[in-house]
């Protein structure tokens, strides 16, 4: 049997026919099992999206079916409220800053670890990698005190800095692995031409690091976008809330107005689903390879 490469799905029909009928039965069974799992994943999501189009009464008698009448005002009310857009903007600002800072400082550190020989480099690399073992929960109370004493309480930058610190370890490991595998001729050529280290890093190494920058960006974007514990402890002004805080507040306020909660959940998960569908291959490989290599 040839290697199971998903990119060759198209000739699967031909391959399946050859061994005869029994294999076809097996394939049907396999597809049935996979379809069941796919339904288990999709039904809750679709039910939530549709729930946002229902009235509460409709939701109660008909949780999984199509709305008996399509109510657009649930979604409309949220989309027309300023709070929703402020929340998304706040999350986007925090995630964007966290991603940019992490890429910048981690790639620079990784460049030093992989391209410069200096006393204590092994020790320092070990010191950075050590961060992979620290649970956020352990650091959260002292972080609260620290951020407060620095006067960064209730600010986006006070949230971004711990996020960057938490993302550095994985990012340095990923960048350093990647930089070590760049071809050595690059370095020779650049230095013969009299290129300095900083220009070399900025004008040659970084532009060649697209794939690994994308991976680090995806890992940290998803982590920042979805983060809840840290902003819950560090932010208190509703105008600064990121969407997870806004979502929890909205849920508390609305009690069992599930049609509104469904609409709100849908609108807050939509951006991530769009990103995922637009860059599916990068997201899947980024999130898994990031986890494996660290």
């Amino acid at each position: 049997m040839p290697k199971g490469n998903p990119s060759t799905v198209r000739d699967s029909a031909a391959a399946g026919r050859a061994p005869g009928r029994r294999v076809d039965v097996g394939r049907v069974l396999v597809c049935a099992v996979l379809s069941v799992f796919a339904l288990v994943v999709l039904v809750p999501l679709v039910a939530t999206v549709l729930g946002g189009f229902k009235t509460l009464g409709d939701l109660r008698v008909n949780p999984l079916g199509l709305p008996s009448t399509w109510v657009w005002s649930n979604y409309g009310d949220i989309l027309l409220s300023a709070d929703y857009w402020v929340m998304l903007r706040n999350s986007l600002v925090v995630a964007f800053l966290a991603v940019v800072f992490t890429i910048l400082v981690a790639s620079m550190a990784a460049f030093a670890f992989s391209q410069l020989r200096f006393f204590g480099s092994k020790f320092l690399l070990g010191y950075v990698v050590m961060g992979l073992m620290f649970p956020t929960a352990t650091a959260i109370l002292p972080l609260f005190i620290l951020i407060r004493d620095l006067g960064l309480m209730d600010s986006h930058i006070g949230l971004v800095l711990p996020k960057v610190a938490g993302g550095i370890s994985v990012a340095v490991v990923l960048f350093a692995n990647y930089f070590r595998n760049l071809p050595g001729e690059l370095f020779d050529a650049a230095f013969v031409d009299g290129c300095g280290y900083f220009r070399f890093y900025w004008e040659i190494v970084l532009p060649l690091s697209g794939p690994i920058i994308a991976t680090v960006a995806i890992i940290n974007f998803v982590a920042s976008w979805n983060t809840y514990f840290l902003p819950m402890v560090l932010l208190s002004t509703p105008e600064l809330f990121t969407w997870p805080l806004g979502l929890m507040d909205y849920t508390d306020e609305r009690g069992s107005d599930w049609q509104m909660i469904c609409a709100f959940v849908t609108l807050t998960m939509l951006p991530m689903i769009v990103v995922f569908l637009a860059a599916q291959r990068h997201v899947i490989s980024g999130l898994t390879s990031g986890a494996v290599k660290s």
Partner: peptide, 30 residues
């Protein structure tokens, strides 16, 4: 070699990119 292998993988991975909070609320409703 099964049909729609990529689609299946995409669907199965989808909940993983959602926030724990989102998944939790969806199921609290369900």
């Amino acid at each position: 070699r099964i049909p729609f292998a990529i689609t299946f993988r995409l669907i199965f991975f989808l909940p993983y990119v959602l926030a724990d909070l989102t998944a939790g609320l969806i199921w609290r409703y369900l």
